[in-house]
Write a protein that binds this DNA or RNA. Structure first.
Lengths: 191, 191, 191, 191
DNA sequence: GAATAATCGAGACGGTACGTCTTGTCTTACT
DNA sequence: AGTAAGACAAGACGTACCGTCTCGATTATTC
C-alpha cells in the first residue's frame, strides 16, 4: 500500500535559503556565535521551519558542509605521469581557494563543528573523502605503483596532505603556494 | 619604586580549581556546551573570581590548554642516528596518549576552541610548538642534514605529522600504532 | 437571478463539532490556554475549516457562548403577582446550574473573553439580554408598576442581580440558594 | 541562628518598574495580548528578572492589582445619617474614575485575569474587600440598623453594587452618574 | 589595634539566544 | 468548492548563560 502524502509539501527552496544563510553566518560570525534566530531572519524563514528541516545546530552545519557551495570547482587531479607535478597543481588550486578569508573562516567553523560533533565529523570526512581525499589517494596509489612514492603509504600520505593544510588553518599560519610546494616535496620528493 | 600589593592576596589554589573544573567540563561536555556558571560552581568559586583570572571564556580555555595536565610526559626525541626509528618511537608514545577517550575528547574540544578563536589558536600553536613541533622540527632538520630527509622539508614535515594525527582525530578514525608507523614511512621512508 | 452555490456544500456537522470541542476546551483549560490547533484536532477538523467558519478566536468563542449548550433550560419567569417569590424561584434555578463546576468554569472563561474583546462582550450581553436580563427586566417592570419595586429601577435592578452573581463567580465565593434569596430580598424586600 | 543574606540584594525599584510597565501594558493591550518580552523591555529589565519576581503571568497581574496605583484615592464613605446620600456620593466618585479609558481597560484586564486564575481572583477579592466592599458593607450595616435598608442584606447589597458596575464594564455599557444614582435607588430607595 | 584595600562566594542584573508553542495563511491531495 | 493534513512566517513563551555589578565576609597591608 502506498503511503499518501498529505498536507502542504515541504518547500525545498526554503531549505536552500536556510543553508545559504547558514553558510554566510558561519563565514561572518564563526561556529559558536552562530544564531538560529539570525539564520531564520536572514533566510526569511520562521524558526520552526529551520527546526523542521534541522533538529539541531550541528545537523544544520553538517548539511551545510555537504550542500552549500563553499569551495569552488577544483581541477581534476590529472595523471601526467609526474606525480609531484600533478599533486602540486592540484594542491595549489586547493590552497588558492583558502586565500578567500570567508572560505577559510568557513573551513575553520566546519572544523570546530566536526571537532564537537560525531555526526558532523562523519559528514566532514565524507566530504573530504569524496571530493579530495579519494582523488588524492587514487592518484597517489598510481604514483606508488610507478615507484614515485614509498609503497603502502598512499592513504596515509593523502591524510597528511589534508591534515597539514588544516593544521596551518587552525594555527593561523598562511597557506601559501610555497607551503603547498614544500608539502608535495616532503611527501614525494623534489622533481 | 616598587608597586606594593595591598589587600587580600589572590588565591592560586582557586585558579587551579577553576582550571581543573574547566578541563573536566571540556572533556565531559565539549567546547560549545561549556558553561562558566557550571565551572564556577564545580570549582566552588564565584563567577567574578573566574573572570578576575580569565577575562573571557576563550582565554580560560587557552590557559587550560597550557596548564591543565592532559597529556602525560612524552619521551625525549632521541637522536640514535636513525631518523625513522626515532620518529616512530616518539609518535607511538604520542598516539598512545590519545587512546584515552578523555584525552582525545579534550584535544577535540581544544581544536574546536582553536578553530574558533585566534587567541586560543595562538596558544594552541605555542603548545604544539614548544612540546611537539619544535622537537620534531629539530630532529627532522638533523635528519635532513644527514640526507635522511629531502632537503628543506623539515618544518613542513613536522606539520604534516601533527596535522595527520589531528585529521584522524577530527574524522574519528582510530589513531593506531600502525597508522603512526605508516605516517613515519610516508615522510622519511621505510627503514 | 439566483446565485447558484457551486462545489461541495459546507458541512454543518463539522461546525457543531468545532463548537463542542471549543466548549470542552474552555471548560478544561480556560480562556487564555485555548488552542485552535487543539480544538481542530479534537473536532477532527482541519485548522482551515475552523477559520472558514470563524475568522478569529474571539468570534469562535462568541459563537460558542450563543450556541454551545452550557446552561440547561431555565424556567419561565412566571408572574404570580408576588415579585419576590417569582424572582426567587427563577434565580434559584439559575444559580443551581452554576453548582456544576464545568458550567461555572465555562462562565468564567466566557467572562474573561468578554472582558478582553468588544465583539465577545456584545454577544455576551445579547445572550444575557435575550435569555435572562430581558425576562428579568420585564418582570421587574410589572413589579414596579404594581408598587413592589421602587419606580425607575427595574433595568438597573436586573443588572444588579446578574452582576452580583458574576461577582460571586469571579471572586470564587459560592453561589448558594441562600445567596440567591438574600439577593432578591435586597432588591425587592422580604416577602 | 540567623540566616545570612548572601549575594547582591534584590532591587525593589526594578520590581516597581516591572509593575508599572505591566499596568501600562494591561491598559494598552489588554490581558491576553500581554507580552512579558514587552513588559521587560518597557521596564528596562531582563526577562529573567521579571520571572525572578513573578514566576507566572497571573502572579504578576495579581501583584499589579494590589500595588500598581491604578485607582486614584476614593473619598471616605461618610456617615451623614442619610445612607442613600452617602452611597451616592461615594459611588459617583468611584464611577468617575472609570471614565478614564485606561482605568476601565485595566479593570477589564484584571477581571479577565481573575476569571482565569484562582490566585488572581483571591487577590482581586482582597483588593475589593479592603478598598471598597468592606467600607460599603460597614456603611450599609449601619444603615440597616437605622432601618434604612432591609435587614440582613448589607453584605449582599455591597456585592450587588460592585457587581452591577462590573457588569456594566463587561458589557461595555457606560458607567454614568445616572447609573450610579439609579443603582443606589434600587438598593436603598429614593431619598 | 584600627583603618584601608583587595579577594572571595554568592547571586541579582540587563541582555541574547535557545528550542517549543500558537496564530492565521497557504498549499497539497482527496471528496 | 469543501475538507483533513500540515508546511509556513511571525513572534511570545519560559530557560540557560553571558559578563557585570553589588552584597557581606575574609585576609592582608599600612598607619
Amino acid at each position: 500500500m502506498v503511503e499518501v502524502r498529505r498536507g502542504r509539501v515541504r518547500n525545498e527552496a526554503v531549505r536552500q535559503a536556510i543553508l545559504d544563510a547558514t553558510r554566510d553566518e558561519l563565514a561572518a560570525h564563526g561556529y559558536d556565535k552562530l544564531s538560529i534566530d539570525r539564520i531564520a531572519a536572514a533566510a526569511g524563514a520562521g524558526k520552526q521551519t529551520v527546526y523542521r528541516w534541522y533538529p539541531s545546530k550541528t545537523q544544520l552545519i553538517a548539511d551545510c558542509l555537504l550542500e552549500a557551495d563553499v569551495l569552488g570547482p577544483l581541477p581534476a587531479l590529472d595523471d601526467s605521469g609526474d606525480l609531484g607535478c600533478d599533486l602540486r597543481a592540484w594542491l595549489r588550486a586547493f590552497t588558492a581557494q583558502l586565500a578567500n578569508p570567508g572560505t577559510a573562516a568557513f573551513i575553520r567553523a566546519a572544523t570546530a563543528a566536526a571537532a564537537e560533533n560525531d555526526e558532523v565529523a562523519r559528514r566532514f570526512y565524507e566530504r573530504n573523502t569524496s571530493v579530495a581525499e579519494a582523488a588524492l589517494t587514487d592518484r597517489l596509489r598510481r604514483g606508488e605503483q610507478a615507484g614515485q612514492l614509498r609503497p603502502g603509504t598512499s592513504s596515509v600520505a593523502a591524510q597528511a596532505l589534508v591534515g597539514a593544510v588544516i593544521y596551518r588553518l587552525l594555527t593561523r599560519q598562511p597557506v601559501t603556494t610555497g607551503f603547498a610546494d614544500d608539502l608535495v616535496d616532503a611527501i614525494c620528493g623534489k622533481p
